[in-house]
Amino acid sequence: MPHEAHQELTGQPADDLSQAITELVPDLLTFARRLTVGRHAADDLVHDTVVRSLQARSSFRGEASVRTWLHRIMWNLAVDRSRQGSRELLVDEVEDRWRDDTYTVDPVVVSEQAADADRLRDALVRLPFIYRSAVVLHDSLGWTHAEIADRLEISVGNAKQRVHRGRMLLTSALAEEAGRQAALKGVVMKCWDAREQVGDYLDGTLPAPAASKLEAHLAACPTCPPLYASLVGATAALGTIRDSDTTVPPALATKVAAALAGAATRRGPGS
């Protein structure tokens, strides 16, 4: 990407580091899409990584490549955002299953699930972040254990363990996903797609065709209607909260006036 592209994106002339970051945005987006679930989350992660890297540019000393440095920033941001979700598999529980000589799965079912990109992503969502990211980096992006260890600042043994556990977790998740799909057979839309649109539906801004599809999903899905009803109830309750006293307390008014006056003084006359 030439310097003109950087200036078009940022409105500023490029220095060497800024130019390098700009050139690596497509690579960052690929990386982000492997670490997150959903296009918007990946876009946000790339944006925040660029912002954080520009804020921390003084810490870049060239000991690693700009790409490696940016990946570490993105990884740390992704870790900070990851939370234990209710649908995530418990590592110890799955490992206990695999230690049981009687535990097995149907390889045909698992292969069919893995061949469907949407179902594979749904299963990946259920893996705790550190295992999901390790197995995706190794098996999807082709990183070696040593590269994963270097980028994530962990030992090679730890990287191998995370990949190994991630594969076990993914296999079990795919097997369980098949059962969930059977329970949802005939339901229009995926649950996550429906839940993403509920906000617009509540606000009355969802286009009619999408609204009809969402309503069909809610009519058949066994899990989404309670969530929707709860959202309606919580939204309605928030609408009842009103503060009839809108008079600004004198102490607050004084503080606000002082803050505004101070800002004006710092700007100087005519600014």
Rank of each mutant, 00 (worst) to 15 (best):
A259E: 12
A117C: 04
T22A: 09
T104A: 15
P107D: 11
V232C: 14
P225L: 07
A253D: 12
A64V: 08
L260G: 08
A210F: 07
K255N: 01
L120P: 03
L77C: 03
R39E: 14
W69I: 00
G157I: 00
A149N: 06
T49A: 04
L252H: 01
V37R: 00
A20T: 01
N158T: 05
D116N: 15
L120I: 04
D80E: 10
N76V: 09
E176D: 15
L70G: 06
R67A: 14
H3Q: 10
M168G: 11
G233D: 13
S18D: 03
T235V: 08
V156Q: 11
E196L: 07
T205Y: 03
H138V: 00
L214H: 03
R162N: 13
A115S: 15
P226T: 07
P13S: 13
M168Y: 01
P128F: 11
H71M: 12
S212R: 13
V105S: 06
T265M: 12
A194V: 12
L90C: 14
L90T: 11
R67L: 12
D100V: 00
Y201K: 02
P26S: 06
F129N: 00
V94I: 15
D203N: 13
A175T: 03
A259G: 06
S53R: 03
A149K: 01
V248L: 09
A219D: 14
L202M: 13
D44Q: 11
T30I: 11
G239Y: 04
G38M: 09
L29G: 03
D27E: 11
R52H: 05
A264G: 08
G268E: 08
V125N: 10
H40T: 15
A115Q: 09
I21F: 12
T240Q: 14
G262P: 02
F31I: 03
G233S: 08
V156C: 05
K190H: 15
E112K: 10
D200R: 05
K255R: 14
D118A: 09
G62L: 12
A173Q: 04
L29S: 11
V232Q: 15
S172G: 06
R242D: 10
V94D: 06
F129Q: 13
S244C: 02
D139C: 09
R97D: 10
S155W: 03
L170A: 00
A216N: 10
L17W: 02
R83N: 07
G268M: 10
T102E: 03
D48M: 05
L231N: 14
W192K: 08
G199C: 01
R39A: 15
G11L: 01
V188A: 13
Q12R: 07
A237T: 12
G199T: 10
L170T: 03
R39N: 14
G62Y: 13
A251D: 15
H138I: 02
R167A: 09
D243F: 15
H3S: 12
L170S: 05
P207K: 11
M189F: 03
G38K: 04
M189Q: 07
V187A: 08
Y228R: 07
L214Y: 02
L206A: 09
A258W: 00
R165W: 03
D245G: 07
